[in-house]
Nucleic acid binder design. Sequence first.
DNA 1: ATATCGATTATCT
DNA 2: GATAATCGATATG
Length: 212
Amino acid sequence: MSKQRNPVSIRPLDRAFFARDPRRVARGLLGKILVRRDARKQLAARIVEVEAYLGENDPAAHAFSGRTARNAVLFGPPGHAYVYFIYGNHYCLNVSCQAEGKAGCVLFRALEPLNGLEDMARARGIALDGPKAELKLTSGPGRLAQAFGITRARDNGYDLTSNAGSLWIGDDGYRAPGVRVTRRIGITKASDKPLRYLLEGNRFVSGRKIAA
DNA sequence: ATATCGATTATCT
DNA sequence: GATAATCGATATG
């Protein structure tokens, strides 16, 4: 009778995990799991690509020009969802970091779907034909938000640190194999800084081409 | 295979 | 009035 640990148990990340520099949080989030649970669905997906945004010190960050109605969550406590709407079409999910008044955050760019793939496909409006279709479920910030039903009205400001909630982030003990760091995607300001973190070789990482 | 482009709206200047 | 932390479709080699 050796000590046994349930391999599928997932522990929520606590507030202290997010109360650090966004670069540390971004690295730490790789390999963790985003969970959506409501009456109808149980969605889970492993975090394979993220970007750090450094608050008021970072020209590419939404918080760069100070607090507004839109980015207020970033100036609040760590571990809360910051959801914004972009290009008239897409929602993107971030988690607030650092501390109250320090508006760092991490953008979720790609996930590897683990559970509830059929529900994700339905939310995305696509068919789950083959292994290739899975790649279109959660590879990209807009795609993963749609797959998880994330909207600003529903999720902005939501506390992501409780596994009693409908949206949270957990650790199942998985250890990230290799982490690669590149420039951030799709931004015009401070685009040279190495603040994008991804799991090396993971096929769910967004964007075929990598800018070093 | 990569490149370019239109969609569509909240937010800020 | 311009812009944007994107996506999917279309064009082209």
